[in-house]
Nucleic acid binder design. Structure first.
Lengths: 251, 251
DNA sequence: ACTACGGGTTAACAATTATCAGTTGCACGG
DNA sequence: CCGTGCAACTGATAATTGTTAACCCGTAGT
């Protein structure tokens, strides 16, 4: 089950992974106690329930969801390599649900093992901390997007973000990427309605910037889409971005 | 300068502070190396600049700001007791600016001292981690608010949030609270324009739910405003909330 | 083959919010 | 005292988005 390649090989790939020593990578891999394949709509971690483990997303997509009077609202998305509820380790109970979109492969890490990391591995602890704050940086960009952009730009923005995040883990190609999100999900994540997102998808397609069908997203002219959506990938802390320096050489 | 009461006495007050031992409180207080009074608009930590210290907000208000083509957009607010750029310790460089709104009193903590904490104080480390994730939880609620609510409800929501957060640190009273935010700032944080927020303020005032003038916010009927704004304070992880259990007794 | 269903699509109309172009009121410096 | 500047406020109009109510089109099941 735990191959030489390592179950955690996508964790922070394209970001801070290079700051990990070989030993730390081994420690990380040894954390995963069990993997599980789960179906669409599986609740990985429910809000308000005391968490005793955290989950690495090995394959598939996951949404952070907050219920608001019956409606399920997406407040975040996760892609393979993301430690989807690592923050449940520090928070103990989440304020939201973590739910799969489409089937997914999960790897579980008990909090007692994380506890050992915090006690014995200061550098690794800091890297784990970093990874939870990466989500917060993405949250902030979503806030900006929702405050500032109109629906067409929001759609472009989220698509660009997904492309970059998938590209970090080698799941995107120059022409686009695969994803299981329905128009409903995109609408939800863009703070608009299914009807409107449909119009918007059409409009952006007619600009020649974006194709979405049957789980496949095509970006005929990504640079132009990024310009159009006022997208700048720096906030993703990718290698070479403005915000990811060489500051992790030291402990 | 460092009184017996302690400069960090507001940190996590009303939340996890009770999980700290007396010794840990002492350690925390010893972190503050220097305090400084700064004017309105002071940049506490600039984006993309390598951070060597973090800042505790002792008095005043602070905004998290992202520039987008000249416009400064507020993506978060901080109140006294908040460790406003603690996440710069794990991230090293921030994706946004941290800026005072009105004059403020700051307390500085060097990252080398935080480094010592991470090495020697696993429980305190986890509490600090918790405090950064609290901001992420607030980010998520803002995302929900921007996705779901209309301007009147957004305004009510942000005001309710501020009341609760200030109440944790004893800076709110039953009738309201003081704050230096202008209508421009509120508009910004609600993802709307100054013109529109002005109309919205008027409308909510006419409902008898809210008064805002000259830095004073009055809430004649807070429970009703919370209902109106679909506000539920659980996400603030206050004592007694659904999400803050007794899970921190252990290390 | 027929039906049910979920997701995508469209049109007409209504509600919300942005934009533009001001006015008012107050505080401050000269 | 006057002028300047900033914040608050307002009206008219345009743009964006929401709502409602459909229809289309595959796929799965009977």
């Amino acid at each position: 089950m735990s191959e030489p390649s390592g179950l955690t090989r996508l964790f922070l790939k394209g970001r801070l992974r290079h700051a990990l020593t070989d030993r730390e990578v081994e420690v990380l891999d040894s954390l995963i106690e069990r993997t599980e394949r789960v179906p669409d709509g599986h609740v990985v971690q429910a809000r308000a329930v005391e968490a005793t483990r955290s989950t690495l997303l090995l394959d598939g997509f996951i949404a952070r969801v907050i219920d608001d009077e019956g409606a399920r609202n997406i407040v975040g998305l996760q892609v393979p390599g993301d430690f989807v509820d690592l923050h449940a380790f520090a928070l103990k109970r989440l304020d939201h649900d973590v739910v799969t979109i489409g089937p997914a492969l999960l790897g579980y890490v008990s909090h007692s093992k994380l506890q050992d990391i915090v006690r014995n591995e200061p550098h690794l602890t800091r890297v784990l901390w970093f990874s939870t704050l990466l989500d917060a940086a993405i949250h902030r960009e979503w806030i900006l997007k929702l405050e500032q952009l109109k629906a067409e730009e929001r759609l472009g923005h989220i698509v660009c973000e997904l492309w970059h995040r998938l590209n970090f883990v080698d799941l995107a190609d120059t022409h686009g990427f695969n994803m299981p999100l329905l128009q409903t999900h995109l609408a939800n994540a863009c703070g608009t309605t299914a009807v409107h997102i449909n119009r918007v998808i059409k409009a952006v397609r007619e600009r020649g910037l974006l194709e979405i069908n049957r789980g496949r997203v095509t970006l005929p002219d990504r640079p132009e889409l990024e310009r159009f959506s006022r997208f700048n990938p720096d906030y993703l802390y990718g290698k070479g971005s403005l915000y990811l320096g060489d500051d992790f050489k030291d402990s």
